[in-house]
Nucleic acid binder design. Sequence first.
DNA 1: TATTGTTATACTCTATAACTATA
DNA 2: TATAGTTATAGAGTATAACAATA
Lengths: 153, 153
Amino acid sequence: MPTARTPSSSESAALDTRVLESLVGYNTRRAWSVISSVFAERMAVYGLKQVDFSVLSLLAHNPGATSRQLCATLDILPPNLVSLVAAMDSRGLIERRPHPTDGRAVGLHLTAAGRKLVREAEQTVTQLELDASAKLTVRERETLIKLLQKVYL
Amino acid sequence: MPTARTPSSSESAALDTRVLESLVGYNTRRAWSVISSVFAERMAVYGLKQVDFSVLSLLAHNPGATSRQLCATLDILPPNLVSLVAAMDSRGLIERRPHPTDGRAVGLHLTAAGRKLVREAEQTVTQLELDASAKLTVRERETLIKLLQKVYL
DNA sequence: TATTGTTATACTCTATAACTATA
DNA sequence: TATAGTTATAGAGTATAACAATA
């Protein structure tokens, strides 16, 4: 007869989470947490954080965008974007050019290296999306995105 | 004729966000960000953060749960739960009792004041959920939760 | 007078190492 | 030897105030 063993707390009966699991907020946070981990892991290969990817991807499709526009779009505060942009400039991924019509602003542009990195990173993210939504049909994935946008738009 | 004015960056043409908006990850984060703000705002009335609410709600439905179980359920690291539990103890919302079978562990229980606060807070959260998903039908809200759980469970 | 970009700084959140008491 | 709870601490992430240059 095997020796009786007290199960550790982590393996013991799980808690009743039915109330929390009935909340859109709780489920959204949990889903984001999981996707976020995988995202961080796969972007680390490129030396990019999640916000870095967002910035580079936005610049790829909006050349010459200003820091202020990036902040408004991504809900980042201006002081917190400064070092991020500076770092990507140092890495040679982006270039800061004088804004054509506003002497206060700086237009941000991807360099050739930046464009190459975004192309690769966007492919990785596309694969990541497929993996993260592997349990969803194509139609369900579209529905999920549509419903999430109804919440925040 | 009105004077011409250069539109500020924040009011000028919005950036093209179509790539980001096609990603489950991006939309989940944005939705969580919006819900999170409203949640924080309304829970401030009770002096509760989001994680505080989760802990109290779990204890309401799982009396005697241990710190370890809360950590495993909510994805919190043990050292980060210590001060949180201590603060709720000081406020008289929870009580720490010796665990009936494990001398290392501490069973956490709501006090009468804690139970009263959870009741009120859960009602506020229920209303918050209705507001946050105001643009969703009852059926869509259920679908959203089901799809989110397919992503993280 | 308002806005862009910036510096400095503070506050919160999250993460790691190491200790103690008990299993 | 492993686990529960704890301490101390480090690192991200996020927030506000204030400044120079330009609108």
